[in-house]
Amino acid sequence: MAPFDEIVASFWHPTSTHGRRPPLTDDLVATAECVLGVRLPDDLLRLLRIQNGGGVAEQWDACPAEVNGYADDHVPFEHLFGLDLADRPGALTLLDTPYLVREWELPSPCVLLSGQGHFWVALDYRACGPTGVPSVAWIDNELGHELRLAPDFRAFVERLVPGSRVS
């Protein structure tokens, strides 16, 4: 496990531009928290201030996990949604969460960090409430299976490993 501060420096994929949004502003964070109805973790915002969404570097693109519908020993984390109010074609943003929760009948309250319809990595606010510290969960919508990946976002990031190292 690498410390969060070390991961921050190399978290983002160095060449991928898919899913990148314009730089994060304090006004956008305030608007997003109002729209989502939750307080976003400071460590998440720290990463999004460096780069507002996009591909995760290969050395951090998987999270070890129990057996699940994706793999026997991990779940993918190849991208992190950014924050953006503009309706731009392409990648999803954290602000798409309310729509996606309704569309895919996902547990709520949560904020979707990454995923693609059948499975998601999410901040799970069900136990802590909207101003608490959310855990990070894997939600396999197709199989109706959930896994708790970490007690908070920082611990989740510190558990990340290269997808090539697992399996």
Results as ranks from 00 to 15, higher is better:
M1N: 00
A2E: 07
P3Y: 10
F4I: 10
I7L: 06
I7W: 02
A9I: 01
A9V: 08
H13T: 04
S16H: 00
S16V: 02
T17G: 01
T17E: 13
H18K: 10
G19F: 07
R20K: 09
R21K: 14
P22T: 14
L24W: 03
D26L: 13
D27C: 13
D27S: 15
L28I: 13
L28S: 13
A32H: 05
E33Q: 15
C34Q: 15
V35W: 02
V35T: 06
V38S: 06
L40T: 08
D42Y: 03
D43I: 00
L44H: 06
L45A: 07
R49K: 13
I50F: 09
G55N: 05
E58C: 00
D61E: 05
A62I: 04
P64D: 03
P64A: 10
N68C: 11
A71L: 01
D72W: 04
H74E: 01
V75D: 04
V75L: 04
F77W: 11
E78T: 13
L83S: 01
D84F: 10
A86P: 02
A91W: 09
L92M: 12
T93E: 02
L94W: 09
T97H: 07
Y99F: 14
V101K: 09
L106V: 12
P109K: 10
C110S: 13
L113C: 05
S114G: 04
H118G: 14
W120N: 01
V121L: 15
V121F: 05
D124S: 09
Y125E: 12
Y125F: 15
R126T: 14
G132L: 12
G132A: 11
G132F: 08
V133I: 15
V133Y: 00
V136M: 12
G144D: 04
E146C: 11
E146D: 09
F153L: 11
R154F: 01
F156C: 12
E158A: 05
R159H: 11
L160F: 03
V161P: 02
P162C: 00
R165G: 15
R165A: 15
R165I: 00
